[in-house]
């Protein structure tokens, strides 16, 4: 078993033929393919190690909770990147700008009618953003608020893509709801 494990810098034997496209955990230098992580190399998928937390990159799906609202943007604290939870206290900050909330009628979006503090939001990273935060979008059917509590404190259930109802009081609150896949 130990012969299968490679260490950073160790060359990986590649069979004759075209060089495969390199995934994460490997790099090419001076014509040789070498590992950059400790683990078992595979021909499909990255070098196998335990799932490691990664910083967000464009096109990664993130989960986070809303920490601050302003008329122009909602700030969220990203806690899960591509299904891998980040260690406690090492969250990344993301920003959902008003034009990134939904795909249509962008000029009519009011941030306060889409998110509230504490909501758990599923989003997609669109760019690395500025120095402080990543830009996140929810402009897709499967993206948006996935968990929210009402003013009464109960977990709300979605009734449409922009409304949620409190099961305790029956009150309707506005949110940009996600329609998760497989429901």
């Amino acid at each position: 078993m130990s012969s299968d494990l490679v260490l950073p810098g160790q060359p990986i034997p590649i069979p004759r033929g075209p060089i495969p496209q390199l995934g994460t955990g490997v790099y090419a230098r001076e014509g040789a393919v070498r590992a950059s992580l400790t683990g078992t190399p595979r021909y499909e998928g990255p070098v196998g190690t335990r799932p490691l937390p990664r910083p967000p990159a464009p096109n990664s799906v993130v989960l986070g909770s809303i920490t601050r609202l302003s008329p122009l943007q909602a700030v969220l604290s990203i806690t899960v990147v591509d299904g891998v939870p980040l260690p406690a206290g090492e969250e990344f900050t993301g920003v959902i700008r008003v034009q990134d909330v939904r795909a249509t009628e962008k000029d009519k979006v009011k941030i306060a009618d889409c998110f509230r503090g504490g909501d758990v939001v599923k989003g997609l990273v669109i760019s690395l953003g500025d120095a402080r935060s990543y830009y996140v979008t929810t402009a897709r059917n499967d993206l948006g608020v996935i968990f929210a509590t009402s003013e009464a404190g109960a977990t709300m259930e979605p009734v449409s893509w922009q409304e949620m109802r409190c099961p305790k009081t029956g009150k309707i609150e506005k949110r940009k709801c996600a329609k998760p896949e497989g429901l």
Partner: peptide, 10 residues
Amino acid sequence: ADAGIEMLGL
């Protein structure tokens, strides 16, 4: 290496 940070070598 233990933290799984990509390196060119040890």
